[in-house]
C-alpha cells in the first residue's frame, strides 16, 4: 500500500510542466494560427506515455496538460487510443507518431477529426478504426475555441473488436484523463485568481487581503485537495475491469468536475468585471472546463453509476472497504 507517485514520476511531471508552460503560455491560446506542437509532444515521449508508464502514473501528466489548456488533443491519442489499441493487440495499426481522434457514445463529438490520421469509433459492442475520409463528418461548434468538433458517421474502415469491453475501457480511460485535466484546470484558475487578487486594488489595498475574497479561493482549494486523490485512486483502478473500477472512475469524474466548475465560478467572481471579458485569459480555461465536464460522462451519468453501486448493487461501503484487500497479480 503506497498512495504516492514515484520520485521519477514527479521528476517527469515537473519536466512536462515546464515544457508545456514554456511552449503553451496563455498568449498562445489567442493565436489560432499557432504552429502545432504535435511533433514536440511526440519527441517528449508523451504520445506513447502509457507504453512506458503504468496507467496509474500517466494520470499525473494529464493534470499538466489541463493546467495549460493545451490545444493539441493529446489525451485522445495518448490516454485513450494507445491503451485501447494495445489491449486489442492492435497497436501496430497506427504509426507511432500518428494522431487518433476518438468518437464514443460518451464523447460523440470527435475533436479535430478531419486532421487526424485515424478515428477510433466506438459503438456499444464494436470498435472501428477509420481514416477521416472513411467517415462523414458533420461540424459542431464548441464553446472552446480550440475544440473543433464533428459527429462521425462511418462509411468504411476496419472493425477491430466486437465486444463491449473495449468500449467500457475507453470510457474509463477517457473519464480519468478528463478528470486529471480538470484538476490541472482547477489549479490554474485558482492560481490566476490568486495572482489577480494580489495586484488588483480597491479601498486602497489588494483585494486579496479581504477575507471574503480569501475564503472564496480557500473553498475552491479545499474542493481541489479532496478531488485529487479521488482521481489518482481511479487511475489505479483502470487496469482492472469491474464494479470497483466503474465506481472509482465515476467518483473521479464527479469530484474533478465539481472542483473545476467551482474553481471557475470563484475565479471569475474574484476577477470581477475583468473576468467577464474576452481580454482576460480566464475564459480559455473556463471553456475547456465546461467542455471536459460534459464529455466522457456528465455529472448526471456518473452520479447514476454511483447511485446504482450504492443502492442497487450494494457495493461494500464502510471503513473496512477503503481498498481491495487482495493483492492482484501483475497490477
Amino acid at each position: 500500500m503506497r498512495f504516492l507517485f514515484s520520485e521519477d514520476l514527479e521528476t517527469l511531471r515537473e519536466g512536462t510542466r515546464s515544457f508545456l508552460e514554456g511552449r503553451n503560455p496563455a498568449e498562445r491560446l489567442r493565436q489560432q494560427d499557432s504552429p502545432s506542437l504535435w511533433g514536440e509532444l511526440v519527441e517528449m515521449g508523451l504520445l506513447d506515455i502509457t507504453d512506458s508508464l503504468p496507467l496509474a502514473e500517466s494520470v499525473a501528466l494529464f493534470e499538466e496538460v489541463g493546467r495549460v489548456a493545451l490545444p493539441e488533443p493529446l489525451a485522445d491519442t495518448a490516454a485513450i487510443a494507445v491503451p485501447v489499441l494495445r489491449s486489442l493487440d492492435a497497436a501496430a495499426k497506427r504509426a507511432s507518431t500518428s494522431r487518433v481522434a476518438v468518437c464514443h457514445p460518451l464523447c460523440p463529438f470527435a475533436n479535430q477529426a478531419a486532421d487526424a490520421d485515424h478515428i477510433l469509433y466506438f459503438d456499444v459492442d464494436r470498435v472501428l478504426l477509420l481514416k477521416p475520409e472513411e467517415a462523414e463528418l458533420a461540424t459542431q461548434e464548441s464553446i472552446d475555441p480550440w475544440r473543433t468538433l464533428s459527429t462521425v458517421r462511418p462509411i468504411g474502415g476496419e472493425v477491430i473488436a466486437e465486444s463491449s469491453g473495449a468500449s467500457d475501457f475507453a470510457a474509463a480511460l477517457g473519464a480519468v484523463a478528463a478528470s486529471a485535466e480538470l484538476l490541472g484546470l482547477a489549479d490554474r484558475m485558482i492560481r490566476m485568481a490568486t495572482d489577480y487578487a494580489a495586484t488588483r486594488e480597491q479601498f486602497g489595498k489588494p483585494i486579496g487581503t479581504f477575507q471574503a475574497v480569501k475564503h472564496l479561493l480557500a473553498n475552491a482549494q479545499v474542493k481541489l485537495e479532496f478531488a485529487r486523490p479521488v482521481v489518482y485512486r481511479a487511475g489505479f483502478a483502470l487496469e482492472t475491469p469491474g464494479l470497483t473500477r466503474d465506481i472509482a472512475v465515476a467518483h473521479a469524474k464527479v469530484a474533478a468536475t465539481d472542483a473545476a466548475i467551482f474553481a471557475a465560478e470563484q475565479a471569475i467572481q474574484v476577477h470581477g468585471g475583468m473576468g467577464y471579458t474576452f481580454e482576460a485569459d480566464l475564459h480559455f480555461f473556463m471553456k475547456r472546463t465546461w467542455a471536459l465536464a460534459a464529455i466522457w460522462g456528465s455529472r448526471e451519468h456518473h452520479l447514476g453509476v454511483i447511485d446504482q453501486g450504492l443502492f442497487t448493487q450494494s457495493v461494500g461501503t464502510g471503513p473496512q472497504n477503503s481498498f481491495q484487500h487482495k493483492k492482484a497479480n501483475g497490477s
Binding site: M1, R2, F3, L4, E225, F226, A227, R228, P229, V230, Y232, R233, H251, V254, A255, L303, I306, D307, L310, F311, T317, P319, S322, F323
Partner: peptide, 24 residues
Amino acid sequence: RAAVTQAWMDAQAYCYSTYMTASK
C-alpha cells in the same frame, strides 16, 4: 438520496487523501 451519495463520496475522498498523506 443525493445528500447520502455525496456523503459517501466525501468520506471516501477523505480516506484517499489521508492514505496519500500517510504515504507521503
